[in-house]
């Protein structure tokens, strides 16, 4: 492999990484597993990058527009990620909440198909998260950091554990609502 391939890979992968992570996260129940699968995907992509390059001679010959190259790479990366999730399912299906094969297949296809919409939504969600009042945003983010146990945060905020989970759910729903409103009203289309 030529040294410039490594630079190219880095650029292509960096641009696709958020999509790959989000795609994987949609298909597995927890963040830790999603991170592990995304990392494995990165390793496979790197090992097989020469195959991608060979299959796209026009890429080597610099005949593709940069955006097209990224689109090709992203599609390939999502296919690889899909296989990595399947492999994870084979290993973990017995001891985790894993969706049925049929549902998994439907979600994978639809996540891939709806990625442009989901990407826009994600961007709007980032903006909506920033607009949350600081105390609520801090508490929400704190709940997602490794060192905090939900029970401790619930106690600290004077809520029962169940009420705390419901509070987080309401915030998540309000973020989705905010993002959809943003997409609809601020000419994101």
């Amino acid at each position: 492999m030529q040294s410039h391939d490594h630079e190219d890979f880095l650029q292509l992968y960096s641009a696709s990484e958020p999509t790959i992570r989000a795609f994987v996260r949609s298909l597995v129940p927890n963040q830790r597993d999603a991170s592990e699968i995304a990392q494995n995907t990165a390793v496979v992509l790197w090992r097989r990058f020469h195959v991608f390059v060979e299959k796209h001679p026009e890429y080597k010959a610099a005949e593709l527009e940069v955006e097209d190259i990224h689109a090709h790479f992203k599609r390939w990366a999502m296919t690889v990620a899909r296989y990595e999730v399947l492999s994870w399912r084979r290993d973990k299906a017995r001891d985790r909440h894993v969706f049925s094969d049929t549902l998994h297949e439907m979600l994978s296809s639809e996540a891939e198909e709806k990625e442009p919409h989901l990407e826009k939504l994600q961007y709007a969600l980032e903006s909506c998260l920033k607009k949350l009042p600081q105390d609520r945003r801090d508490l929400l983010l704190e709940a997602y950091t490794a060192r905090n146990k939900p029970q401790e945060l619930a106690t600290r905020t004077g809520k029962t554990l169940n009420a705390f989970y419901q509070w987080m759910h309401r915030i998540r729903l309000s973020l989705v609502k905010c993002a959809k409103r943003t997409l609809a009203t601020e000419s994101y289309q």
Partner: peptide
């Protein structure tokens, strides 16, 4: 409902991405 689910999962991605930065 699957579409709603995928959107809901995207909220989790955004929060999970921001949590380590906050920490």
């Amino acid at each position: 409902l699957r579409e709603e689910f995928l959107e809901y999962m995207r909220v989790c991605v955004v929060i999970e991405d921001n949590a380590p930065i906050f920490e």
